[in-house]
Design a protein around this nucleic acid. Structure first.
Lengths: 301, 301
DNA sequence: CAAGGTTATGCATTTTTTGCATGACCGGAT
DNA sequence: ATCCGGTCATGCAAAAAATGCATAACCTTG
C-alpha cells in the first residue's frame, strides 16, 4: 500500500469526482481511477459507490476516511520527527495558504491582526489551493487561508470546518506601464494582432478565476498565450518586463502600481471579486487558537 | 512511501542484517538495500548506521522504529475495519505461530491448557517463523508460539518481550513404513545410490534445523533433494507416499507412527531437540491474558 | 432519447523495481 | 600486514508496474 493512495482517496472524498481529483493530483483520470482501485483491492472492500454521479462513499469508505486521515497524519508526524524537525514553539500556528496569498495578502493581514491581538508566532505552508485544503484536512495545519468564489467553491464540510471571511480581493488585468501611465497592452486586443497573454497553468485556482473574468465581461477578446505558470508572482514579473497582460490579485500589485511599473490593462468589466477566507477545524483547537479565532470573528463583525 | 518499506525496516531492526532480512523478505539483498534507502530518502534521514557490522540504528532510526510499528498497526487495523472484519469477541487471544505448530502442537497444547485453566477463545495466525515474530512486534497478535534453538535464536528483545518454555520437540528423519515396520529409506544412504530427500525451503526455520541435525551426527550422508516445501505437513504427505526421507517434528508424526505409515529413518544421532516457546509483550496485557500467563508460568514451573 | 458529462478498459510507452554480477569495505584470522 | 569470509553498495540489463492516450461503456439531465 502506498501513502500516495491515501492522498488520492482524500482528494476524491473532497471532490467526489475522479476526473477532477485526477487533475488536481496531476495524473490522468484512468491512472487515478486505477490507483483508487488499487487502494480498494488492498483494503479488500469498495470505498466508492460508482453507480451514480456524483459518486458516494460506501459505508466502508466512510469508516476508512477517518483512518486515512489519521494514517497520513501519523506518517507525516513520523517523518517530521525522524528528520529531527524542531517541534513548533508553544502557541505557534501553522498556516496553509496558496503561494500568492503567502506573498501578498498574508504579511499585511498578519501585521494588522497582531496590531489588535498581540504577537502571533506562525509557520507558513505555501502550496497551491488544493494542497492547502488537503493539508487542513490531514491535520497538517491549524488554519487555512484561501480564495473563495461561488463558481469555484472550496469543498470543506461546514459541519467539520468553520470559516471566517477576511476580505475581498479583486483579480484584474495588468500590463507594464508605458509612457504617460498608459499600459503597453490593453484588453480586448485586436483580431489582427492578439495581445500577448500571461496565463495561469490550467489547474491553478486563479486560472479558473481569470477565465471567469474574461467570460463575465461578455466581450470578445483577442489573446495569444505566450507564457504559463501557476504562481501570480511569476506572471507579475513577466508583466513588468513587458511580456504581456496578466490577471493579478490587487494585493500583489499595490507597490507596482504606485511605482508605475504596472498599469490596469482593461475596463472594470474585466474583474472578478474573490473572497479571502480563513478556515479551521471546529474540534480540537488550542486555547491560543481559540482566543485568536474569537478575536478574528469579533474584528470581522 | 510504501507500507512494504516499513515491514522491511522492522525486519531489519530484528535481524540487524541486510542480507538476512532480504532473504526473509524474499527479495535479493540489493533490492532490499535499495528499499531501505528509499525509506530513508522519503524520511530525509538515515535510519541505519552501516559503518560497522552488525549494523546499528541511528538515533533517527531508534525514534522512527516505534512510529513504524504504530503506523503498520494502524494500517492493519484500518484495513480490518474497512473489511468489516468481526472484531474479536471479548477475551479472545490472538496467537501467531508457524504452520507446523498450528497443525500439530497447538491443538493438543490448547486442550491441555484449557483442562487446567478453563476455556480460551483463540484466533490463530499461521505463517512462517519470521512473519510470526513480526506479527508480535507489530502488535498483530497477543501471543507468539515458535521454535527456539541456540543456533537459530528468535530475535526478540528480552526487555520488551517475556517468554515461557512450553516443551521440547525433536526433529528426526522419517520415511514411509515398509514391510515389518522397516523404513523404506534409511540414513545415511549410499554414495552409489543417494537417498531421495524431502527438504525444507532454504529460508524456512526448520531448514536450518534439519541442516543442524545432519551436521550434529558427524557422519557423511548421501542425499539427493527431490522435493522442497516450507511446511512440514507438505513434506509429511510426500514421505507417506514414499517419495523419500524428511525431517519432521515429533508432534507431527504421532498418528502416522502408530498407524505404521511412517517409520524413523535414522539413528538417534540424527536428531535435533528444539524448544517450543511462547512469547508475549511485557506491557499492555489484558487481565485475561495476564491470568492465563500466570497459569502457564505456574504450570511450567 | 439525445447530449454532455462521467468512469472503465485495451494497448503501447514510459518509468520503476528487481536480479545478477561484481565492486568496495569491514573485522578477525593467520 | 595481508588474506579471507563475510558484509553492503553499485552498474547494468531484464522484468514488472504505472502511466497516458484513445475509446468504450455508462449515467444524468434536459
Amino acid at each position: 500500500m502506498e501513502i500516495k493512495w491515501l492522498e488520492d482517496f482524500l482528494s476524491l472524498v473532497e471532490t467526489r469526482s475522479f476526473s477532477r481529483s485526477a487533475e488536481l493530483r496531476h495524473v490522468t483520470q484512468p491512472a487515478f481511477s486505477r490507483r483508487i482501485r488499487a487502494l480498494e483491492a488492498w483494503l479488500g472492500a469498495d470505498l466508492i459507490d460508482r453507480t451514480s454521479y456524483p459518486t458516494r462513499l460506501t459505508p466502508a469508505g466512510e469508516k476508512f476516511h477517518s483512518h486515512a486521515v489519521a494514517l497520513l497524519a501519523a506518517a507525516v508526524a513520523a517523518r517530521a520527527e525522524a528528520r529531527g524537525e524542531t517541534p513548533l514553539a508553544r502557541d505557534t500556528l501553522r498556516f496553509a495558504l496558496p503561494h500568492t496569498l503567502a506573498l501578498t495578502f498574508f504579511p499585511r493581514w498578519l501585521a494588522q491582526v497582531e496590531a489588535g491581538f498581540g504577537p502571533v508566532a506562525s509557520r507558513l505552508i505555501a502550496t497551491n489551493v488544493h494542497d492547502a485544503v488537503l493539508t487542513l484536512v490531514e491535520g497538517g495545519c491549524d488554519l487555512l487561508i484561501c480564495y473563495h468564489h461561488p463558481r469555484q467553491p472550496v469543498q470543506l464540510d461546514p459541519a467539520r470546518y468553520e470559516m471566517l471571511p477576511l476580505g475581498v480581493e479583486s483579480l484584474r488585468p495588468y500590463a507594464a506601464c508605458g509612457k504617460g501611465g498608459v499600459p503597453r497592452f490593453q484588453l480586448p486586443g485586436r483580431a489582427a494582432q492578439p495581445l500577448p497573454y500571461l496565463a495561469y497553468s490550467p489547474n491553478a485556482y486563479l486560472s479558473r478565476m481569470a477565465e471567469l473574468a474574461l467570460e463575465n465581461a461578455q466581450r470578445r477578446v483577442y489573446l495569444r498565450t505566450v507564457y504559463e505558470t501557476d504562481m501570480a508572482e511569476g506572471l507579475k514579473v513577466m508583466a513588468i518586463e513587458g511580456h504581456g497582460v496578466a490577471f493579478l490579485p490587487a494585493s500583489a500589485v499595490i507597490r507596482e502600481l504606485k511605482q508605475k511599473q504596472l498599469a490596469l490593462a482593461g475596463a472594470p468589466a474585466w474583474a472578478v471579486e474573490m473572497e479571502v477566507r480563513i478556515y479551521r477545524e471546529r474540534q480540537g483547537a488550542s486555547p491560543f487558537l481559540e482566543r485568536l479565532w474569537r478575536h478574528l470573528a469579533a474584528a470581522g463583525a
